[in-house]
């Protein structure tokens, strides 16, 4: 049971870290943050690879492969879509953006 206590320690510390690191997020970033966190739990792909790579049962192999496909969609898609969202936030910093120049000759 000693080992379980070590895992419990890691778990509880991670809970506090998880809350602490995002506690100051502005509502502007809620959507990308949710999306990014979503991508991070796509790391279950690692778990899917581990179980699939060590099974010798045909049914389990198929189930494991399905899990790998789903997890890869979660992980890769999640990071790509988050990056797409965040690109738009980055672009605004330099501001050669079309400030009113055209039209409006009243």
């Amino acid at each position: 049971m000693d080992e379980a206590v070590v895992w419990l320690t890691i778990f509880i510390l991670s809970v506090f870290v998880g809350i602490e690191v995002i506690s100051k997020v502005s509502s502007t970033l809620h959507t990308p943050l949710m999306s990014g966190a979503n991508a991070i739990h796509g790391i279950i792909l690692l778990g899917a690879v581990l179980v699939t790579g060590s099974t010798d049962n045909d049914v389990a192999l198929v189930v494991g492969l399905v899990a790998i496909v789903l997890a890869a969609v979660n992980m890769v898609g999640g990071f790509v879509v988050t990056d797409r969202m965040l690109q738009m936030f980055v672009r605004k910093k330099p501001k050669p953006a079309p400030v009113p120049t055209e039209g409006g000759n009243a």
Partner: peptide, 29 residues
């Protein structure tokens, strides 16, 4: 949290930490 529990089952610390981080920050968010 599911991924964190899976990490415990597979004795994999990355899954445990990543899953817990998302579980905790997700709940807070």
């Amino acid at each position: 949290l599911t991924v964190a529990a899976g990490g415990y089952v597979l004795s994999n610390v990355v899954l445990l930490v990543a899953g817990t981080l998302v579980g905790a920050s997700g709940t807070y968010l």
